[in-house]
C-alpha cells in the first residue's frame, strides 16, 4: 500500500473545504475498513479511480458522531460506529431492523470501528472490481468481466453495463424505513431521501450514489414508524461466519387486521442499488398479507434478469420476501 497524508477534520465545513482543495485524489475516511484495508491495500484503481493520496478523517468531527432521538425521529451521525447502533436501546426498540442490519455486518471487531456512513458509501465487492488486473467499467476501463465471467454473486435485477450488487446491509434497512440523508458540500447542507441517494451504472458507472467528490454524508434521519407498523429484516449469506448478503430483505409496512395498508419491501445484494420491490408492494396493496405473501413474493420474477450463473438468487429472493413478510406479522 502507498503512504498517504491524513487530515483530522474538526468540522463538516473543514472536511468539505479539504476535499474541494485537494480534488479527486482525496477521500473521506471513517473506520477505513473498506477504504484502507480494502480499496487501498488491494490497489483497486484505474483511469476513473485515482489512488487516494490524502485521507480526510471525519471520525474527529464531534457533530458527526452519535445517536439522537428527537421530534419523533432518529438521527444517527454518519461517523457513528455500527456497534453503537447495535447497542442502542432506542434503536432496538423502535427501529429494530436498523439494529439487526447493523449487527449483520462483518464481525464484532470490525463493527467496533466501522461506521454507518462508511457502510452506506462503501464500494462494491465485485471480485473483478477488487482484482488489480481487471480494468473494468467501474474503474474507468472498457469491459465488464462479470457479463461473460463468473457472475454467481452479481446482480439479478437492474444490472446494465456493470453488474455489481450494492453491498450495504444498513442501506437496505434505511430505504425500507424511508430514511433521509443529510449531505454537506461546498454550497452547504441538503436533505435527500434514500429513494434518490443511490444511483445505478446508467447514471454514472464510476460511483454508486449521488455524492460528488467534495460532498459527504453528515447524518441519517429515520422517521418514527406510524401506528400499526410491522417490520422485519433477514439476510442470507453463503457461509455462517460474517459475509456479505447473497440476498437480504427488509420490509416495513402498516397493516390493519392483517391487511396491507402501505409500506416498503427492499432487497439488498441483488441489484446495483438497494432495490425497492414495487412489484411486490403493489401485489400486496389492500390484500391479506399472509394469504398474498407467496404470490406477491413471486412477482419479483417479473423484474429479475439473472445472468449465466446466478439464477439461483431469484429463487432465494422469492423465498426470502415471503419469509420476511410473514415473520413481520408474528
Amino acid at each position: 500500500m502507498k503512504s498517504f497524508e491524513l487530515y483530522d477534520a474538526t468540522s463538516v465545513q473543514e472536511a468539505v473545504a479539504l476535499l474541494s482543495k485537494f480534488g479527486p485524489t482525496s477521500k473521506v475516511v471513517a473506520g477505513g475498513s473498506d477504504l484502507v484495508t480494502g480499496i487501498m491495500k488491494d490497489w483497486v484503481r484505474g483511469k476513473g479511480m485515482p489512488y487516494p493520496e490524502k485521507l480526510i478523517d471525519i471520525t474527529t468531527i464531534p457533530e458527526m458522531v452519535g445517536i439522537k432521538v428527537a421530534n419523533n425521529a432518529l438521527t444517527v451521525g454518519a461517523a457513528t460506529t455500527l456497534s453503537s447502533i447495535v447497542d442502542s436501546a432506542d434503536i432496538k426498540k423502535t427501529w429494530p431492523i436498523l439494529s439487526q442490519s447493523a449487527e449483520s455486518v462483518a464481525s464484532p471487531l470490525i463493527r467496533n470501528f466501522a461506521t454507518l456512513g462508511g457502510n452506506i458509501n462503501q464500494r462494491p465487492r465485485c471480485w473483478f472490481f477488487r482484482g488489480e488486473n481487471f480494468a473494468c467499467y467501474k474503474k474507468g476501463g472498457d469491459f465488464c468481466f462479470a457479463v461473460t465471467g463468473d457472475n454467481r454473486y452479481h446482480a439479478i435485477i437492474g444490472g446494465e453495463l456493470c453488474y455489481i450488487v450494492h453491498p450495504s446491509d444498513t442501506a437496505t434497512a434505511l430505504l425500507a424505513l424511508n430514511a433521509k440523508a443529510t449531505i454537506a458540500g461546498p454550497s452547504g447542507q441538503r436533505e435527500v431521501p434514500f429513494d434518490t441517494y443511490f444511483t445505478g451504472p446508467r447514471e454514472d458507472v464510476l460511483r454508486e450514489n449521488l455524492l460528488k467528490h467534495d460532498e459527504l454524508l453528515v447524518n441519517v434521519t429515520v422517521p418514527q414508524p406510524a401506528a400499526n407498523t410491522r417490520m422485519a429484516f433477514f439476510k442470507l449469506k453463503d457461509r455462517q461466519v460474517y459475509d456479505f448478503a447473497l440476498c437480504s430483505v427488509a420490509a416495513v409496512f402498516t397493516e390493519e387486521n392483517g391487511v396491507w395498508k402501505d409500506g416498503r419491501v427492499v432487497l439488498g445484494g441483488v441489484s446495483p442499488v438497494p432495490y425497492r420491490a414495487k412489484v411486490v408492494e403493489e401485489a400486496l396493496a389492500g390484500k391479506n398479507i399472509k394469504q398474498a405473501a407467496k404470490d406477491a413474493a413471486g412477482r419479483i420474477r417479473t423484474v429479475a434478469r439473472p445472468m449465466s450463473l446466478n439464477g439461483y438468487k431469484v429463487d432465494i429472493a422469492v423465498g426470502l420476501i415471503e419469509r420476511v413478510l410473514t415473520s413481520a406479522l408474528v
Binding site: C144, V147, T148, G159, E160, L161, Y163, P201, R202, V205, R305, S308
Partner: peptide, 13 residues
C-alpha cells in the same frame, strides 16, 4: 444477444 445492455448504456455514455 445476452441482454446485458452494454450497448444501450455505452451508447448513452
Amino acid at each position: 444477444c445476452i441482454g446485458c445492455l452494454t450497448c444501450e448504456v455505452i451508447c448513452s455514455q
